[in-house]
Write a protein that binds this DNA or RNA. Structure first.
Length: 628
RNA sequence: UGCCCGAUGGUGUAAUGGUAGCACAACGGACUCUGAAUCCGUUUGUCUAGGUUCGAGUCCUAGUCGGGCAGCCA
């Protein structure tokens, strides 16, 4: 199989799934002049890896068909939404698709509303996109240089109001005075027909007047709604005269105080799709039962251009994490994590801060496929995608997380031996660097055992091990403190076994990493592990002893060891680590500079770098099964 | 409960009436100056019962199990 290798730039195989099959068929029969999709988040939370699946599907379809994908905020409920989220969503989307599908990103000229036009003699509204790669710092049209912005459903409130009036004129919508509880009881249970609202047969003139007065702010919140007149006996709840508009006297983050009536999702979404010329409106499974309503609204407005259609796929679930916005918000608000971008969070910004490349995230969400089956994907698949990406691209470096001092007794105190180290064995072009070998070193405490188990092939008293890129050393003496703790190992170096030396080919079983004790940098290193201890924090029942209150509470499964902070010693070159660079600390894992933290050293005042562990290397030996 | 949707190894996903394949995981081996990577190999699957057909994972019917919908949320 072909892989997306950045060195060979071999293309990844074009994904295939039922949605793409439908699109391909439409392309084959020239149903639309151009394929247009959209990614429509509500700005009420941060984007997570589940959204990444939707983003890669929608932008993927666009890029594979020379089409476009609009970023549109589905902002029809001002009480839940906030500008805080708008900026983060734009940043996350652009990071995820950057260099991959950003040429398909559809934005609109800033402040522009749908244009009034006539198509085949019929009145119409249309808002075409500007498609291209807007610069990252400032979003501008690459052609004209004019400012761009994402689409907003709230930019269509005028047009949506006009469409609502059209429905009223046709006798297909009415103003209803029922209270919320009454609406619920009139709607009825799914197995029996509902009851028609007493306000259902109001005259067109009365409905027009009432709807206008709703808009003018003459009624309090909840007093009246606009409803579609469809069928109170429908087995589909969403066809039982669904709400189209409700009254909300609240300021909207994008439209300010212009409106006090706001359209419902079902009314706004299908028409927003239409206004933007969307052809394929791809959403998750829970909207499947809404599709007849989506089609009803568009089908009853005599719209002159081709209508969009909705297709549904199963959302992404991953083991050992939670995905619902509510639960993620809870983790943030209750300070169980450090914020939305905490590297343990399944948010896009969390992964980014953790050091996961966008290409790895993309590869993962594309790899799991698109179906209508409610699946639970093993987090191991994600971890594999990350390791696979980083293995090919990360620069190898030496770092010791939990140091034990080693003294090479046959080396002079002040001397330095420069050792050539390979930067990336997967990429010959990455070259080499020099690391200093000195009399005093640090090695990983795990790499020495006084009484090792069978098949342990690192350092032991009297044993030999190779220092990677340097030479073989032999452990002559174990120095302990008063409590019996190992404080120092005295070893002799076999300099003939140096890389490139006469005895370079000498074999010893183990090779370990190391850093010079006198020429290294200190860093804070944050070791992240999965946030939850169970595969399904949502579903796992509480243990029998737990109280009823704790039953089903995902928070009881939070991993108390999901973050460990150590002071590590790094090879000197890492003082110049770059934020965008990815590193493999050899034999340990993949690490990236934390861009949000700069810890000044209290002693020296020098900035001490902070590294986040993106993911550890696979380590079968660490597992119980590996210790046989 | 009514309606809608779904079901292929442990997990995810192909096979579009014609040899059930791939990835991850697991296990074994080779190689190794990273117990990584790489390479080779092994184990494990069409929910059940009928029907259509020369032939069914695929089409039909019924059942079982799972998910969704009953916000003036999206």
């Amino acid at each position: 199989m072909t892989v997306e290798n950045p060195n060979t730039s071999a293309p990844a195989p074009a994904p295939s799934d039922f949605v793409r099959d439908i699109v391909a068929q439409h392309v084959a029969e020239h149903r639309y002049p151009r394929i247009i999709t959209r990614f429509p988040p509500e700005p009420n939370g941060y984007l997570h890896i589940g959204h990444a699946k939707s983003i890669c599907l929608n932008f993927g379809i666009a890029r594979e068909n020379g089409g476009q994908c609009n970023l549109r905020f589905d902002d029809t409920n001002p009480i839940k939404e906030d500008v805080e989220y708008v900026a983060s969503i734009v940043a996350d989307v652009r990071w995820l698709i950057g260099g991959w599908a950003d040429q398909c990103l559809g934005f609109k000229p800033k402040g522009k509303a749908p244009e009034t036009q006539s198509v085949g003699g019929k009145p119409d509204f249309y808002l075409p996109a500007v498609v291209g790669r807007p610069a990252f710092s400032e979003i501008r049209d690459p052609q004209s240089g004019s400012a761009l912005e994402p689409f907003h459903a709230s930019d269509y409130f005028d047009q949506l109001y006009t469409y609502a009036v059209t429905l009223i004129r046709q006798g297909k919508a009415y103003v209803c005075d029922l209270k919320p509880e009454e609406v619920e009881s009139y709607r009825g249970p799914p197995d029996r027909p509902g009851k028609e609202s007493p306000y259902r047969e109001r005259t067109v003139a009365e409905n027009l007047d009432l709807f206008h007065r709703m808009k003018m702010g003459m009624f309090p919140d909840g007093a009246r709604t606009l409803r579609a007149k469809i069928d109170m006996a429908s087995p589909n709840i969403w066809l039982r005269d669904p709400m189209l508009y409700r009254i909300r006297h609240v300021e909207h983050h994008h439209t300010g105080n212009i409106w006090c009536i706001y359209p419902m999702y079902d009314f706004a979404h299908c028409l927003s799709d239409y206004l933007e010329g969307v052809t394929h409106s791809v959403c998750t499974l829970e909207f499947e039962v809404h599709r007849p309503l989506y089609d009803w609204i568009l089908g009853n407005l005599d719209l002159p251009r081709p209508l969009p259609h909705q297709y549904e796929f199963a959302r992404l679930n991953v083991t050992y994490t939670v995905m619902s916005k509510r639960k993620l918000l809870q983790l943030v608000q209750e300070k169980l994590v450090a914020g939305w971008d905490d590297p343990r969070m399944p948010t896009i910004c969390g992964f980014r801060r953790r050091g996961v490349p966008a290409s790895a995230l993309r590869r993962f969400v594309i790899g799991v496929g698109v179906t209508k089956f409610n699946s639970l994907t093993d987090v191991a698949v994600l971890e594999h995608a990350i390791r696979d990406d980083l293995n090919r691209t990360a620069l190898r470096r030496l770092a010791v997380l939990r140091p034990v001092k080693v003294v090479l007794t046959n080396l002079p105190a002040g001397g330095t031996i420069a050792c050539a180290a390979v930067n990336n064995p997967e990429d010959a072009g990455a070259g080499t660097r020099e690391v200093p070998l000195t009399r005093e070193l640090f090695i990983e405490s795990d790499d020495f055992m006084e009484t090792p188990p069978p098949k342990y092939f690192r350092l032991r008293p009297g044993g030999e091990v190779r220092l990677k890129y340097a030479c073989i050393i032999k452990c002559d003496e174990v120095v302990k403190d008063a409590t019996g703790c190992v404080v120092e190992l005295h070893c002799t170096a076999d300099l003939d076994s140096r890389t490139g030396g006469p005895n370079a080919g000498r074999k010893v079983k183990g090779t370990i990493h190391w850093v010079s004790a006198t020429q290294c940098v200190e860093a804070e290193v944050r070791l992240y592990d999965r946030l939850f201890t169970v595969a399904e924090p949502d579903a796992a029942p509480a243990s029998a002893e737990s109280s009823g209150a704790a039953r089903g509470d995902f928070k009881q499964f939070i991993n108390p060891r999901s973050l460990e902070v150590v002071t590590a010693r790094l090879e000197p070159g890492l003082a110049q680590a770059k934020p965008d660079e990815r590193y493999q600390f050899e034999r340990l894992g993949y690490f990236a500079l934390d861009q949000a933290s700069e810890i000044p050293n209290p002693k020296s005042g020098i900035r001490r770098p902070v590294f986040n562990r993106t993911i550890p290397l696979r380590d079968p030996w660490a597992k119980p099964t590996g210790q046989k």
